[in-house]
Nucleic acid binder design. Structure first.
Lengths: 349, 349
DNA sequence: TTGTACGCGTTATCAT
DNA sequence: ATGATAACGCGTACAA
């Protein structure tokens, strides 16, 4: 029972070679004779040496092989959104070429103990979302000289971004609804600001959340007068709350609802069915995101399929490229409109 | 424009102090005079030095401040389960005392490029789930001499585990259902093995998934003869599939269904309502987990509320303790039975 | 193919 | 309160 973990020098001594030779055996960066290789490995096994200390290797190499992913909210909250989840999946994929792992970081402004965004041993960072904190996070990583990519957020110049065509996509869906013959349409939106207040959005309201504003703008290009009801978040329950408000008055029911996310759309459908309306016969509903909404079956949402996984992968590949020295341009991803079973022409009364 | 990032020696030189003094200014580990402190900070600002290099600090200190979380499946898949999500939240919380961040690791057995579980600069590891891979992962981290905690899995001796009282909890729910007067009960279970095949579980079937087996055993203590239908996973849609099978034949409908997760229960409820049954008037349904099932409202599941967040936090605190040198015992967490609106006495026909 | 020499950037210890 | 010194464990020129 040694009192201290074995180092590569110990192994080298045991094997009767120099430390650098042992190092080379483990890294494989230089050819070694089969004999020494075997002896080194045997010595390592004997000493319980499991490989180079990652901390020392990382100092020496100047790289840790870790990419930080920065959230501005509780991890639990962030992962509740399937879009985020899929993006993480793509991200893991995108950095895997580089063999990097993902470090979950939360930058909430507080001075926490390490490792925070300021001190984590990361080779690059991915900033997510469009929070007000984003600028500050960006400041921190840029000061550290760490490559950074921003996903769907407002970054300064010189920072590669991965963006979505929210305006155009939402416009396309709205156009489809209009072409079906709908004129009486209500929009259900994501929160308009950090307050996350529910309610009808006034014409002069300032929508400070990027995504919300863009999708709203897209829909309004087709339905300039459509009333818009803001939800407090993206969930089925929130959608149902909005839906109940919309379908409460039988005399003022719209023939179509354009929701800004699939979850909201699913909630609206739920509310419609509660109110005795059939989808799409009595009311058409569209969503946005193209995620699998658990429990929505047998409906198939008419929606905009966003490449959530690809978004993450693009971000991952971008940071990989930056780590390797190149300067990737930003990437603009596009959604694909998908016609499902939740839209139909309005009923002729 | 310097060609190289400034180091703490550069800062010290610029400030006219020694490197160790500068170091102390940043770490705060030793009192310093206000004057030197200010001079060092000024020098740092001038040189664009943003703090000690985490890699070097980590080598020197022998700690990285990073805790690895090991999954055996796609991250996207893992995070689809709200229980996992909540656990991650608790985990983040539990390691925060130590100021650690979480590194997402996937150990799928392949020899990947670093950092894998074998080479990641982690101070401790948390292994999740009851996969066959778990033993191997365990082997790797133990060989590295890294503290490890296993959550709801089968670990060897000497490894702290965080466990749930699945058997007892499920038994309590079953007892409650029995006490309501139900005799004709069907169980809906999680997958029985890696195959994830749907279908009725034969009496002599081998249930190799720990959680499934435990919850099944608990229910069978009260309802030894109850037929059990395995789902292919934990989701509303899977629950609905099981539910449709169960309610297909009007003559053979049970008066109660005991589902092994809330998501499955929600699906069963959906299927029941599709079949024109009212919950809980015509059929009672219980779940397990106590997560918020988006879209289940207005129902409130009768279920076993599992302390998912606490589970994660316990694991986090356990690794924190181990990093600091103590050897925490395992922790047995208990579920709390919660009566909701989805159970009632069977209708007297 | 193997060994020598050096430095990566920091911090703990101890002396002043 | 500050400074000198010595590792921390490794990888990589370069020489042999």
């Amino acid at each position: 029972m040694s009192t201290r973990r074995a180092t590569i020098s110990d192994v080298a001594r045991e094997a009767g070679v120099s430390a650098s030779t042992a190092s080379v055996v483990f890294s494989g960066n230089t050819p070694t004779s089969e004999a020494t290789r075997a002896r080194v490995l045997a010595a390592a096994a004997k000493l319980g040496y499991t490989g180079p200390d990652p901390r020392a290797a990382s100092l020496r190499r100047g790289r840790s092989g870790i990419v930080g992913v920065v959230f501005d909210q509780h991890l639990g909250t962030a992962f509740l959104d399937p879009v985020t989840t899929h993006m993480m999946d793509g991200l893991a994929d995108g950095v895997s070429r580089l063999g990097a792992a993902l470090l979950l970081l939360r930058d909430d402004g507080e001075m926490v103990r390490e490792p925070s965004l300021q001190t984590a041993p990361i080779d690059a960072a991915v900033l997510i979302g469009c929070s007000p904190r984003l600028r500050d996070s960006l400041e921190i990583v840029r000061a550290r000289g760490i490559p950074v990519v921003v996903v769907e957020g407002d970054a300064g110049p010189g920072v590669p971004r991965v963006l979505l065509d929210n305006v155009e996509a939402q416009r396309e869906a709205a156009r489809y609804v209009a072409d079906l013959g709908h004129r009486d349409v209500v929009l259900v939106t994501l929160p308009v600001d950090i307050e996350r207040r529910r309610g009808w959005i006034a014409d002069d309201a300032v929508v400070s959340v990027h995504v919300t504003a863009d999708r709203l703008a897209g829909a309004r290009e087709v339905f300039p007068q459509a009333p818009a009801l803001a939800a407090a978040g993206s969930s089925i329950d929130e959608g149902a709350i909005a839906g109940r408000a919309i379908f409460a008055d039988p005399d003022r029911r719209p023939t179509a609802v354009i929701a800004q996310t699939d979850l909201l759309a699913a909630g609206v459908i739920r509310a419609a069915e509660e109110a005795g309306l059939r989808v799409p016969l009595d009311v058409s509903v569209t969503g946005f995101d193209g995620v699998v909404v658990d429990g929505l079956a047998p409906h198939v949402l008419t929606t905009l399929v966003q490449p959530a996984t690809a978004k993450g992968r693009a971000a991952g590949e971008a940071v990989s490229a930056m780590i390797e020295g190149s300067t990737p341009a930003g990437l603009d991803l596009t959604c694909v409109f998908r016609v499902g079973t939740t839209t139909a022409p309005p009923r002729t009364t």
